[in-house]
C-alpha cells in the first residue's frame, strides 16, 4: 500500500487521540508493577505502550507535515468518519447485542437481518423478510444442529 500524501479528514485529531491513548496505556502499564524489576508483569506492557507512544508521535508529526485536505472541516470529518449508514448500522448492531440476553439469539438476529437488509437492499419488506427467515433457518441448522452451539434462548421465553 502506498503512503497517502494528503491528509485525510480528521487525521491530525485522530493522531493526537492515539498519542493520548498510548500515554494513558503507558501510565496504566506503569501501574502494574512500576520499575520494580526487569522481569515483572508490567515490563512488556510498558515496552509495548512505549512503542505505541513513539510511533503515535511519528504518525502525529507526519500528519502535521502533510497539507490539509480541502474537506477537513467538521462536516468533512463527520462525512468521512461517520457516514449516516455506518452510524445507524452500528447503532442497530449495538441494540442487537444488548437485546440478545432478553430476546434470544435467533429472534434478535432475525430482527437485525430484516431491518438491515430492508434498509440496505431497498427491495421492500417482503423480500427482506423472506431472506431473513431463510438465513435464520440456515444459521439454526448449521450452528445449533451441525456445530451443536448452545445459542442463547433469551430470558423472555423462559
Amino acid at each position: 500500500m502506498k503512503p497517502n500524501d494528503t491528509l485525510r479528514p480528521g487525521e491530525r485529531l485522530f493522531a493526537l487521540l492515539l498519542v493520548i491513548f498510548a500515554g494513558y496505556a503507558f501510565w496504566e502499564s506503569y501501574g502494574i508493577s512500576g520499575f520494580r524489576g526487569l522481569t515483572t508483569g508490567g515490563v512488556m506492557p510498558m515496552l509495548a505502550s512505549c512503542v505505541m507512544l513513539l510511533t503515535g508521535l511519528v504518525f502525529l508529526s507526519d500528519s502535521l507535515r502533510k497539507p490539509r485536505a480541502p474537506d477537513s472541516g467538521l462536516a468533512g470529518v463527520i462525512a468521512y468518519l461517520f457516514p449516516l449508514r455506518v452510524v445507524l448500522f452500528t447503532l442497530l448492531v449495538a441494540i442487537y447485542v444488548a437485546a440478545i440476553p432478553s430476546v434470544g439469539f435467533l429472534s434478535a438476529s432475525g430482527g437485525l437481518l430484516f431491518l438491515t437488509i430492508w434498509a440496505l437492499w431497498r427491495k421492500g419488506p417482503i423480500p427482506a423478510l423472506l431472506i431473513s427467515l431463510l438465513s435464520i433457518g440456515a444459521i439454526y441448522v448449521l450452528f445449533r444442529v451441525v456445530f451443536q452451539v448452545v445459542l442463547p434462548i433469551g430470558s423472555l421465553w423462559r
Binding site: 440478545i100 440476553p101 437481518l113 452451539v149
Partner: peptide, 30 residues
C-alpha cells in the same frame, strides 16, 4: 453486499459467542 454485510455481523456474533458460550464476547467483538 446489502445481504452479505448483515450476515457477516450475525456470523461474527455467533462465532464470538461460541468460543466460551459467553455473550460478553459478542460485545468485545463489536
Amino acid at each position: 453486499r446489502a445481504i452479505l454485510i448483515p450476515l457477516i455481523v450475525i456470523l461474527s456474533a455467533v462465532g464470538a459467542y461460541a468460543i466460551q458460550n459467553n455473550p460478553v464476547h459478542i460485545t468485545w467483538a463489536l
